[in-house]
Design a protein around this nucleic acid. Sequence first.
DNA 1: AATTATATAATCGCGCACGATTGTATCGCG
DNA 2: CGCGATACAATCGTGCGCGATTATATAATT
Lengths: 149, 149
Amino acid sequence: MSDITITRKNYEMLKLKNQLCFPLYAAAKDVVAKYTPFLDEIGLTYTQYIAMMVLWEQGEVGVSELGGYLYLDSNTLTPLLKRLEAKGLVRRERAADGDERAVRITLTQAGAQLREQAAEIPAKIGACLPLAKEEAETLYWLLYKLLGN
Amino acid sequence: MSDITITRKNYEMLKLKNQLCFPLYAAAKDVVAKYTPFLDEIGLTYTQYIAMMVLWEQGEVGVSELGGYLYLDSNTLTPLLKRLEAKGLVRRERAADGDERAVRITLTQAGAQLREQAAEIPAKIGACLPLAKEEAETLYWLLYKLLGN
DNA sequence: AATTATATAATCGCGCACGATTGTATCGCG
DNA sequence: CGCGATACAATCGTGCGCGATTATATAATT
């Protein structure tokens, strides 16, 4: 082993192509971008869409409960939910009887009805991702493992 | 098969847990968050860090060339590079002789020296990701396939 | 040479993300 | 009961991302 190898720093790991995080970062942006044309049709952003998905499934949630599903906090969710409220898709109200701190998010009729159009999207996205079914399942599994679940 | 199965819409695919994109989105944020304490020590954000990585490797790049590596455009990069310039890490200059449209990004001495501290980061990150080496390699490969490469 | 097309970076606007703080309500404990 | 700790949502500031547009310089075409 030469003196050079010993004394010089090894910058190999610092190259973009040797990083796991970079393709993760880039692929996440890329896939969200694939949603955009479909989400534009129903007037939602990607983050608004996943928030609506939780509401369609749960019916009613609190802000921090929603944040638990989405890995987001009130600093992101409060303005986002206000925008969904402005579009007439959700209601935000503090229970008059119960805990005055908690804000309950519920679907309006328009918000509930939007589910029907949204239901077309997963299949459309699946069709334009360049992964075989088995690869998608492996990726799904690895991502949840990376998330620590 | 019952009438209900035929007439009702199937919302199964619309559930968060059946989506591939959501763990991708969440894991990307989560891993970037793991970088933050290390990047704080050298005063960079994650996006600034990957921009510096390209510069450390390439020495000198144009704005759109950099965008080609990072999947970003001038609308994101111009203000980011101005912030790196304000920190004294890069220079932005139009060639007096050549193409007056192109902006060349070069490292200052401080920017070049920062590489040494940054070189510690990949190993630290690798150590706190809950994936075995082989899993990380599979994930890496699947992400690049998803990116269309 | 004049005109049109293309390339390049910058600018603008909006919606996230997220660290940090604030204000209020509820809970736990003595 | 009182009071400190905790929970909850909102607010604030900064930095991305990105669609859309703009300004200018270069290239291509007639």
